[in-house]
């Protein structure tokens, strides 16, 4: 096998397929996060600070989720696009999304191990989540905002 070759370069994937995979990742991740928060709210994990805990969660996933669902809704009645996207670009977006969702989930999941109060940790996590969310948003924009301009 020729190790100097770069077989992936130039490989393209159908845009719709990529959109659906990314949407699945985001919907599944967000659903798990919301279910976790619901369970914690019912268990009175946050006491009088339940609203603040939700105030932390919703801005971390809802904007991107709205973008994805909105794009699907907007194109639901249009004919299936035959556009393709670069495979590397898709993988980058996919793993960035997974990485971001794992980081978000890590905040409530790791909190019992840290000794910090949940709200304190949530405030702290905004330092890194905000930056990564911006990068993820840009990478997803190719698929859900400028999908029409993708190469066909």
């Amino acid at each position: 096998m020729d190790r100097t070759a770069a077989p992936e370069v130039g490989k393209r994937l159908p845009l719709v397929w990529c959109q659906r995979r990314l949407a699945l990742v985001w919907l599944a991740g967000a659903a798990l996060l919301v279910l976790l928060m619901i369970a914690q709210s019912i268990g009175n994990k946050y006491g009088g600070a339940t609203a603040q805990a939700w105030d932390w969660l919703l801005p971390t996933v809802v904007p991107t989720l709205s973008l994805i669902v909105g794009a699907f809704a907007a194109t639901a009645r249009q004919p299936l696009q035959q556009a393709t996207v670069d495979a590397f670009s898709y993988r980058l977006s996919l793993w960035l999304s997974v990485f971001y969702l794992v980081l978000v989930a890590a905040v409530p999941l790791a909190q019992p191990l840290t000794g910090r109060s949940p709200l304190e940790l949530m405030q702290l996590s905004k330092l890194w989540l905000g930056a990564i969310q911006g990068v993820v948003g840009i990478s997803l924009g190719v698929y859900f905002v400028s999908g029409g301009r993708a190469e066909s």
């Binding site: 914690q40 268990g43 994990k45 909190q111």
Partner: peptide
């Protein structure tokens, strides 16, 4: 004070995850 809590098992952790301490 912030002290790393001690868990004796997964059950302890889950209780701490889902309910108030």
């Amino acid at each position: 004070d912030q002290l790393p809590p001690h868990f004796s098992g997964i059950g302890d952790y889950l209780r701490a995850l889902f309910s108030a301490r």
